[in-house]
């Protein structure tokens, strides 16, 4: 009976398809769009600029989805956080206060989501679906749909518009948040318990894991990340506007799932998420350079996402 039970080496398609897809798409565009400057330093920097904000939200979302939950309110939160940051700066209260207010805005709605999910027991899909509209509405109402420009150059530099040498500041944000996310996800009790809750909530509970608290925390974290993403939007656009982040929730979720995180929870990777976000960014960028109009871009992007996930299902 004492046969040795060993993990057979098995290539995990679901977790690795994103790297293959990324390499494939990147090489494809590099060859076909070479003359159009796809590989130029300027364009590569541009891809990072377009991807970084989605990545920041996607890191938070990886935790949420790993715990078996979902957060549809992240796009709306970015708008409100960008606006509130812009208002604080506009009132001349300085960067520190702006920072606190921006993050607190995100955190606040994350906490509200978390409260309804973990304490009242409403499915996160419903809570965040509702909050999505409520928060966007609040953002519209706050300034009566007017955009608020940000004239603080220091803020704009550090939170989105700046470059260090050739490298956009947003790239550093993406790496910083990615690193922190990686360590928390893989090396802390919180990360491990998040996976446990998503993998088998009952088992986690019976092992003494505080499952409600974990759910609360992942929702709050996702809100916080969306708050930061909003501040980066504000810095990049040098303004706050209620339309920021519209539809981002779908890009964020797509990045996470493409990255190999199980939609049912319990399994995921942070690096996969980052590459998933980059993949989305490269696809968008490539299609724009190729001269496709918005409608064509949407069609192809949708198909690529489905195709990649379907390939990942292969046994």
């Amino acid at each position: 009976m004492q046969s040795k039970i060993k993990g057979r080496f098995r290539f995990d398609w679901q977790q690795n398809i994103v790297f293959i897809a990324f390499a494939f798409v990147f090489i494809f565009f590099a060859i076909t769009l070479y003359k159009d400057g796809f590989l130029s330093v300027f364009n590569i920097a541009n891809i990072f600029r377009q991807t970084a904000i989605i990545s920041v939200m996607a890191i938070g979302m990886t935790f949420v989805i790993s715990a078996g939950e979902i957060d549809l309110s992240v796009g709306s939160i970015t708008a409100l956080s960008a606006l509130s940051t812009a208002l604080v700066l506009d009132a001349g209260l300085g960067i520190i206060i702006a920072l606190i207010v921006g993050l607190a805005t995100g955190m606040f709605f994350g906490v509200v989501n978390g409260f309804f999910v973990s304490q009242i027991g409403i499915p996160s899909f419903l809570v965040t679906l509702g909050m999505m509209g409520t928060i966007r509405g609040t953002a519209m109402w706050l300034t009566d749909t007017k955009p608020i420009p940000i004239l603080n150059d220091t803020y704009n530099f550090w939170f989105g518009s700046g470059n260090i040498g050739l490298i956009p500041i947003l790239f550093f944000w993406m790496i910083l948040i990615g690193l922190i996310g990686y360590v928390v996800y893989n090396k802390t009790t919180f990360g491990r318990h998040t996976l446990a809750v998503g993998g088998n909530e009952k088992a986690a509970k019976y092992t003494g894991v505080k499952t409600s608290l974990i759910k609360f925390k992942v929702m709050a974290l996702s809100g916080l990340m969306a708050g930061l993403a909003g501040m980066l939007y504000a810095g990049r656009m040098q303004s706050g506007r209620y339309t920021f982040g519209e539809g981002d929730e779908l890009s964020v979720i797509a990045a996470v799932i493409l990255g190999g995180t199980s939609l049912f929870g319990g399994m995921g990777t942070i690096i996969g998420t980052l590459v998933g976000a980059l993949l989305m960014g490269v696809i968008n960028n490539g299609l724009i350079i190729a001269g496709l109009d918005v409608s064509q871009q949407m069609i192809i992007r949708g198909l690529i996402i489905i195709l990649a996930v379907a390939l990942g299902k292969k046994k």
């Binding site: 491990r192 446990a196 993998g199 319990g266």
Partner: peptide, 9 residues
């Protein structure tokens, strides 16, 4: 009776 392990870990 029902296993209390997390299958994905």
């Amino acid at each position: 009776q029902e296993l209390s392990l997390v299958p994905t870990l």
